[in-house]
């Protein structure tokens, strides 16, 4: 099963879990599957318009996904979806 790696800022929504195994054939389905288990997770990654939040970057197996195409990217059973969320003070 594909794995979704949860970034530290979002682990409150996943009860501290650092990664979640899900069913899904593309990135969007994987994220929705995490949300089914942990309601409230999906909006942290995807905005109301269905686009990836601008403070989030998505990677599959370490490769950053192209902007605008991220959610449609095909995922296989061995893949790892990683979410990077901006955090900084300033």
């Amino acid at each position: 099963m594909p794995k979704v790696v949860i970034p530290p800022p979002y682990r409150g929504s996943t009860e501290g879990n650092t990664q979640v195994e899900v069913d899904g054939v593309n990135v969007a389905q994987c994220l929705e599957a995490v949300d089914q288990r942990y309601p409230g997770f999906f909006p942290l990654v995807v905005d109301d318009d269905g686009s990836v939040q601008r403070f989030v970057k998505l990677f599959v197996n370490g490769e950053q996904l192209d902007a605008g195409e991220e959610l449609h990217t095909a995922i296989s059973a061995e893949d790892e979806v990683e979410i990077l969320a901006a955090i900084a003070g300033g």
Binding site: Q53, R54, F55, K57, A85, A86, I87, G90
Partner: peptide, 14 residues
């Protein structure tokens, strides 16, 4: 990711 390319101010929503 270059997460700070639009400045730290862009993390207000998160």
């Amino acid at each position: 990711g270059q997460m700070f390319k639009t400045g730290t101010a862009s993390i207000v929503p998160v």
